[in-house]
Nucleic acid binder design. Structure first.
Lengths: 182, 182
DNA sequence: AGCGGCATGTAAGCTGTTACATGATTAC
DNA sequence: GTAATCATGTAACAGCTTACATGCCGCT
């Protein structure tokens, strides 16, 4: 899965501009796939060149022109081709987990601070997703609901562990700490 | 955080070869940072060139020579510099979540199959981590225990959602499904 | 005879990021 | 007046992956 597969998927839902696509990334999709303008626009250019999508310039009043892209039949076949390809394994990279892994070379204060920052960030993401979920839950497709529940439950689990991690560092206990009432 | 920061962190624990480092990645670290030989060896070369580590060739009987690397004082200072830098946000990219997001353009059969594959893979990772945890829990540093608990709880939460997702797809219910006994 | 483990590395290429460049309108 | 939003794009670079290249040892 790469940028152009996701762009194609978004255009399956109807014509969009590069700007629209970036917006849609930010609310929902960004929890498992992020992209910058520097990847969206080149992806659109490439898809247009290979005939997967077509461009139409829409003149707007008081705003810059929009370059709206529509998926072609060839593009739809390409998207089905993506869906038929093997599922790629998830990719997860975490700086905070690396710092915990090497935690004994740092200060306990820093560890607690990093964990608290991680909690705060995840609470922010959680709230954002919950709001979007409450607003749209009645019209979302079943699989999309699963993707949202996945991120929701994931953030909640991570927040719990990080909070428990802070308590653990401050308790001075051994590994038995994690074996009480899991 | 990049490959050389992690390599430096691993060398803080004592001298290691490129092969050793790749081995250690595979058991534990790989849950939040993976690297191939193509990134480990160039990282070592670069770190040696800049004086962060020093090489010593150890002749072995019946096996190829090992190039053992030891961290220098400069390297240790560099590692402390990394720990003092701002924590980078987590990076998560998931093909299966993308396929769920665009799920209405695919078949329900495929969705269930992908979810089941995701569950199986996570059960495998969970078992692997649990085994490593049971074997070493008494000697692991507190922060490293947190990093393991993080992955453990995370996989468990993901497996639960994916299982519930399969049940949901097969139940034919609406979004209320997710609001019973969360 | 062949495979898996041990062990080191390189080269080409893919993918994506960051920073830059431009410019109008609207709200504070 | 100045910041944010709307809107499009490029160029240079970073960072990592894949595939390749090599070779011995021990087991089956």
């Amino acid at each position: 899965m790469q940028a152009k597969d996701v762009v194609l998927g978004l255009l399956m839902q109807g014509p969009k501009s590069g700007y629209d696509i970036k917006q849609e990334y930010e609310m929902g999709l960004s929890h498992f796939f992020d992209a910058s303008y520097g990847s969206v626009y080149p992806a659109l250019k490439q898809l247009e060149k290979s005939g997967m999508i077509v461009k139409e310039i829409v003149v707007q009043e008081g705003k810059p022109n929009k370059h709206m892209f529509t998926i072609t039949e060839l593009g739809e076949r390409q998207f089905q081709h993506y869906l038929a390809s093997p599922v790629q394994p998830d990719f997860y990279r975490s700086d905070i987990l690396a710092r915990l892994y090497f935690g004994k070379y740092g200060s306990a204060d820093a560890l607690v601070r990093w964990l608290q920052e991680g909690i705060d960030e995840r609470i922010r993401l959680l709230r954002q997703l919950e709001t979007a979920y409450e607003e749209h839950k009645a019209v979302l497709s079943p699989p999309r609901l699963i993707s949202i529940q996945f991120s929701l439950q994931d953030y909640q689990a991570q927040i719990k562990v990080m909070q428990k991690g802070i308590d653990y560092l401050q308790s001075g206990q051994g590994y038995e700490f994690w074996e009480m009432s899991s």
